[in-house]
Design a protein around this nucleic acid. Structure first.
Length: 743
DNA sequence: AGCACGCCGACT
DNA sequence: GTCGGCGTGCTC
C-alpha cells in the first residue's frame, strides 16, 4: 500500500488535542515519516510553519486532494520524550482499540485547564492619573475593548489571563498593542504545586539495613538479567520478604547511571507505608502522583519532571506516562492488582503498557507480587519474563495457621447464620484474650450466582465454565455466550430446596456478630462507611488504636495495612468471589484469600485464619490453605487452556450499548456475521452475543460478544477491520462500541 | 494559538 | 472612500 498521506496532530503542548489534520507526504520525505515523527507543517491561512506530530499514515485522501498541503520537513531533533510517548499512544491504540485521540489523551497530559492556574497575568503599567488620560482618549475613539480592559485594570491593577479573555472578551491583539504602548504589562508566571509539603520531606535514611542472602541473590540475578539484555523481571516474594529493599537497590543503580525511575503502586491510600519508605530513602528526588489529582496538577508534576527536579515518580497507573527524558526503570508493585487495568477507553493494562514503553525507551521493567497474576506467571514459564522468588519472611515471623470450615456441615447441624460454629468459637477465644479480629466479606465481583447451601453445587454454563447469573425476569443467563435457562427450585445434585443466591452484606454480618458478641466493639469498613475524604484513615486509625475489637469489611481491609494485634482473620464466604461470572474468579479468590490470611499475626503474636466455604475441595481454596501458589497455578492454567482463556489464548470483547434494545441486537447480529465473513483462522471462535452482567445502565442496554484466538495478531486485525466497518455503516451511529483485550 | 475576513465608525 | 479596531471562525 502506498501511504502518501499522514494524519497529524498540531503542536500538542498548546492546542486542543481533539483534531487531526491530513497532509501529503512529499516524495523526498517518503520513508522518513512514521507515527510519532515530529514534522514541520504549513498551517492556517498564512501558512506559517508549525510543529506537528504524525499519528498515523494513510493511502486515501479524506478531503479534496487540492486542499491537502504538503509536509514541509521532518524536525531535526527527531526523537524526544514526546515522540516516544506518542509512539506509545499508537501502540496502545493498536493493542487495545480506541481512537488515536483517546490514546493520546491518556498518554499526554491535557493542558487546557492549565491556563487558569498559571500562564499570564495582566498588570497596569502606568499610574492611575495616566490611566485616566488614556481612558479619555480611548473613549473619544470608541475603542471598546481597550476601554473595557483599562476600566477593569483601574478597579483592580492585576487580572488573570482567563478573566481578560473569557469575561472581558479582549482579543490577544489588543493586549499586544496596549503592551507595546507601555500601558499594560504582561507577566508570565508558573506555579508548580508540590504535593509533598515541605514538612513531609523526611530525613534521608542513609544506612541500608544490609540485604539478606536471599534478597542479595535476587538482586544479583536481576542485574545479570539486565546485562543480558533485559527481559521483564518478576519478583515473587511472600509478604514480608523485603521486595521493597530489592527495588531500592535497583533504583539506586539506575539513578547512578543518570536515568529516572517510575514506581507504580495500586492505590496510595492503601500503600502509604511503602511510599513513606521511598521518601525516607530518596528524599526530594521523589514525587508522588495520586489518582485524585486534577489533570492540571498532574501536568505541573510532569513539568517539574521535565525540568529535571525529580528523578523518581511514584503513582498509580497514570504515572506510567511520566515524561522522563532518560527513563531507566519501571517498577510495578503488587503487579496482580486489578487497578492496573484502565476502566475507561482505551482499556490498557499498565503491566503490558509498561513493557511496551520499556522496549521503546530501553528501560528495565521489574514486577513484584506475593501472588502473581496468572498472566505474568505464565510469561515466566514461557520464558518471556524472568522469575525470581523470595520465600522467607525476615524477622522469622511465621505464617498463620489456616483452617477451612465446610458450610454444608453447618447447615446440616442446623446453623443457618453467616458465622459457623468454629469461627464463633475462635472469635470468642480471641476476644477473651484481648486480641483483635478481622472479618472479611468479599462482595466485589458478586453477580448473583445461584448455589446450593446443602451440597455447594453451583449452577454453571455448560459451555463456558462460568457461573450463571440470576436475572429479574426469573432466568439464569451466561454472560459469555448468552446461554439461558429457567431458575431452579431445587438442587439438581442433591434435591435440597436450599438453593438460591448468596445474600449477605457487611451490615448483616455486623448484626450477627452483635447478636453473638454483644459486649464486643465492632467497626464496619465498606463503600458506605468510607465515603468521606479520609474515611479509610479514620476507620483504620480507630481500629489500630484499639477502639474496636472486630473490624468487618470488604476488599479494602485486606490490603496493605499492618495491625499487630490482629490474631484472627475470618473469611465469611470464600465462594462469593470464586463463582463470580468471569473466568478470572478463581485467580482473584486465591489472591484475596492469601492476602486476607496474611493479615493475621503480623506482630509478636502468632495468628490464625478461618475460611468458610461450601467448596473446601476447590483448588483455589486448597492452595490458599497451604499457601501454595504453584499448586494453584497448575490447576488454573490447565483450566484456562482447556477453555481457551488468556493467557493461553487471547480474548477480545466487543462491548456494545444502545438505548434501543432491538437496534442493539440487530447491530450485534451484523457484527457477528461480519466477523464470520472476515475470519481467516480456523481456531478463531465467536462466543455470544450475550447480555452484560449489568444488562442495562441508565436506560442503555448492553451486550457483549467475545472472540477467542491463539493468535493475538489475528484478533487485532479483525478488530481493526470491524472498527472500520462500524465507522462506515450509519446503522451503528446510535450504538456505542468499546473493545476490551485480554481483560 | 494566530491569522484572515468582514463589519463598522472615524477621519481625510 | 479608506483606515484601523473589533469580533468571528477556521486551520488539512
Amino acid at each position: 500500500m502506498n501511504e502518501r498521506y499522514a494524519d497529524i496532530i498540531v503542536d500538542i503542548t498548546h492546542e486542543k488535542l481533539d483534531r487531526t489534520f491530513q497532509y501529503q507526504i512529499p516524495p523526498e520525505l517518503e520513508g522518513r515519516v512514521q507515527a510519532g515523527t515530529r514534522v514541520k507543517i504549513p498551517f492556517g491561512g498564512g501558512n506559517r510553519i508549525i510543529d506537528g506530530y504524525v499519528i498515523g499514515l494513510g493511502s486515501r485522501p479524506k478531503y479534496e486532494p487540492a486542499k491537502i498541503k504538503k509536509i514541509a520537513a521532518v524536525a531535526e531533533d527527531g526523537i524526544t520524550v514526546e515522540t516516544r510517548l506518542i509512539t506509545l499512544a499508537a501502540w496502545i491504540r493498536e493493542t487495545y482499540g480506541s481512537t488515536m485521540i483517546q490514546a493520546l489523551k491518556t498518554v499526554v497530559p491535557v493542558k487546557d485547564k492549565k491556563k487558569a492556574k498559571s500562564g499570564r497575568r495582566i498588570l497596569l503599567n502606568v499610574d492611575q492619573l495616566q490611566a485616566a488620560s488614556w481612558l479619555e482618549q480611548f473613549r473619544r475613539r470608541k475603542y471598546k475593548a481597550k476601554i473595557r480592559l483599562l476600566e477593569a485594570l483601574v478597579e483592580r491593577p492585576e487580572l488573570t489571563d482567563e478573566y481578560v479573555s473569557k469575561e472581558l472578551k479582549i482579543p490577544g491583539e489588543t493586549l499586544k498593542s496596549l503592551a507595546e504602548q507601555g500601558i499594560i504589562r504582561l507577566e508570565q508566571f508558573t506555579v508548580y504545586r508540590n504535593p509533598i509539603g515541605e514538612s513531609d520531606v523526611l530525613v534521608q535514611e542513609k544506612e541500608a539495613p544490609g540485604l539478606t542472602a536471599e534478597q542479595k541473590e535476587v538482586l544479583d540475578g536481576i542485574l545479570r538479567e539486565w546485562e543480558a539484555g533485559g527481559r521483564p523481571c518478576l519478583i515473587q516474594g511472600i509478604t514480608g520478604s523485603g521486595k521493597t529493599l530489592v527495588y531500592m537497590e535497583l533504583i539506586e543503580k539506575v539513578l547512578l547511571e543518570g536515568r529516572q525511575v517510575i514506581i507504580l503502586i495500586p492505590e496510595i491510600a492503601l500503600t502509604w507505608q511503602t511510599v513513606q519508605r521511598f521518601y525516607r530513602k530518596f528524599g526530594s528526588l521523589v514525587t508522588v502522583l495520586n489518582s485524585k489529582m486534577s489533570p492540571a496538577e498532574r501536568y505541573d508534576q510532569f513539568e517539574r519532571v521535565k525540568q529535571g527536579e525529580v528523578q523518581i515518580v511514584i503513582g498509580p497507573r497514570s504515572a506510567l506516562f511520566t515524561p522522563f527524558p532518560r527513563l531507566g526503570l519501571i517498577v510495578i508493585d503488587e503487579e496482580h492488582e486489578n487497578s492496573y487495568r484502565s476502566e475507561g477507553t482505551p482499556r490498557y493494562h499498565a503491566r503490558e503498557t509498561a513493557i511496551a514503553r520499556g522496549k521503546l525507551e530501553g528501560a528495565h521493567v521489574v514486577l513484584g507480587s506475593a501472588t502473581p497474576s496468572v498472566d505474568a506467571y505464565y510469561r515466566c514459564r514461557q520464558g518471556s519474563y524472568a522469575l525470581f522468588q523470595m520465600k522467607s519472611r525476615y524477622g522469622g515471623a511465621v505464617l498463620p495457621k489456616v483452617y477451612p470450615v465446610d458450610m454444608r456441615e453447618e447447615l446440616k447441624k442446623g446453623n443457618r447464620t453467616v458465622l459457623s460454629g468454629p469461627l464463633q468459637e475462635a472469635i470468642g477465644l480471641r476476644l477473651r484474650a484481648g486480641e483483635q479480629v478481622m472479618l472479611f466479606l468479599n462482595r466485589r465481583g458478586y453477580a448473583g450466582f445461584i448455589s446450593c447451601r446443602a451440597c455447594g453445587h453451583v449452577v454453571k454454563c455448560p459451555h463456558c465454565d462460568v457461573s450463571l447469573t440470576y436475572h429479574n425476569n426469573g432466568r439464569l443467563i451466561c454472560h459469555y455466550c448468552g446461554f439461558e435457562r429457567e431458575q431452579l427450585t431445587s438442587c439438581p445434585e442433591c434435591g435440597s430446596p436450599y438453593i438460591g443466591g448468596f445474600r449477605a452484606g457487611t451490615q448483616q454480618v455486623e448484626q450477627v456478630v452483635r447478636k453473638f458478641f454483644p459486649e464486643a466493639r465492632t467497626l464496619r469498613m465498606d463503600a458506605d462507611t468510607t465515603r468521606g475524604k479520609d474515611g479509610y484513615e479514620r476507620i483504620l486509625k480507630a481500629f489500630s488504636g484499639g477502639e474496636a475489637d472486630i473490624l468487618i469489611g470488604t476488599q479494602m481491609i485486606v490490603k496493605g495495612h499492618d495491625f499487630p494485634k490482629v490474631t484472627l482473620v475470618g473469611v465469611i464466604a470464600a465462594d462469593v468471589s470464586l463463582f463470580a461470572s468471569d473466568y478470572r474468579a478463581a485467580e482473584r479468590t486465591y489472591q484475596l484469600l492469601v492476602q486476607a490470611v496474611g493479615r493475621a499475626g503480623r506482630g509478636e503474636l502468632p495468628g490464625e485464619a478461618v475460611i468458610q466455604t461450601y467448596h473446601p475441595e476447590h483448588y483455589s481454596i486448597q492452595a490458599a490453605l497451604s499457601q501454595d501458589y504453584e499448586a494453584f497455578y497448575e490447576e488454573e492454567i490447565g483450566s484456562r487452556e482447556l477453555m481457551g482463556y488468556p493467557p493461553v489464548s487471547n480474548l477480545l470483547a466487543v462491548h456494545a450499548s444502545c438505548d434501543r434494545e432491538d437496534t442493539l441486537q440487530n447491530a450485534m447480529e451484523y457484527i457477528r456475521r461480519y466477523l464470520i465473513r472476515i475470519r481467516r483462522r480456523n481456531d478463531l471462535q465467536l462466543v455470544g452475543p450475550a447480555p452484560e452482567s449489568v444488562a442495562k445502565v441508565q436506560d442503555y442496554y448492553r451486550e457483549v460478544l467475545y472472540l477467542k484466538s491463539g493468535e493475538e495478531q489475528e484478533l487485532i486485525r479483525m478488530r481493526e477491520l470491524l472498527e472500520r466497518y462500524i465507522e462506515i455503516n450509519r446503522g451503528f451511529a446510535s450504538v456505542h462500541i468499546q473493545f476490551d483485550f485480554n481483560a
